[in-house]
Design a protein around this nucleic acid. Sequence first.
DNA 1: CGGGATCCGCATCGATACTG
DNA 2: CAGTATCGATGCGGATCCCG
Lengths: 134, 134
Amino acid sequence: MKAATVKTITARAANAYSADCPTRQILDRVGDKWAVLILLLVRHEPMRFNALRRTIEGISQKMLSQVLKSLERDGLIKRRAIATVPVTVEYSITPLGATLANAVDPLRDWAEQNLKEVLSAQRRYDAQRKPIAA
Amino acid sequence: MKAATVKTITARAANAYSADCPTRQILDRVGDKWAVLILLLVRHEPMRFNALRRTIEGISQKMLSQVLKSLERDGLIKRRAIATVPVTVEYSITPLGATLANAVDPLRDWAEQNLKEVLSAQRRYDAQRKPIAA
DNA sequence: CGGGATCCGCATCGATACTG
DNA sequence: CAGTATCGATGCGGATCCCG
């Protein structure tokens, strides 16, 4: 995720490869290991921090809070803190985020329909190459 | 890109967070900094190695050949070596790759339409936070 | 021209500890 | 519960050299 290291990289990376291409920037975000997952999770109902943490399971709290902040910064999700006894925080999707989620759907569908084909392509490729050469 | 370090991570990462989710695996690929870019570039006409290199500009030959191999392995692009005097190699998209490219289109569109909004959301977010506090 | 092999810095990410 | 701060390992990715 670029967003975390804004100060260091932004300027350099920006013009490295056609900076004018919005696709790259969004792709970077979409490509984020967790960003889309979270977006899709909060899509239907708001979720709390630890709920997300438990659902994704494999993400560290560091990553989670980091990605969450990044998504909020982009205006894709919204953070809402409720002053209960132990603090409660809800993350929900924004209208903008919802439109992105929609744009991601075709990808989801493609993934579900074609993963097997991709996997078998990989096997075919690997088969005629190095058989790991134990 | 996971593909490069198959031996080390695959097993672990696979079951870390719902391994059964094809979306994750495809997202990893789509998220690859360059993979989609390349896919989109070879989409219409076959391209040569250095042509890609020059077009993307910012990618190292290491990354390029690595991503290229990975995409070929996944059956998304096709490599064709022509035995000319200096070797000529053409990379073209496969039917499978083409369907993926199609699935990516909505994302492209979204990016182009909403990047400005995302950027202004970022500015708003940053404005009411730390003004860099030089 | 199209890459493979190697070296290596530096950002990324996980684990741990602490706070409000 | 919802995070922040610090530390430490690792592996990504760039640079360079070389080969077919």
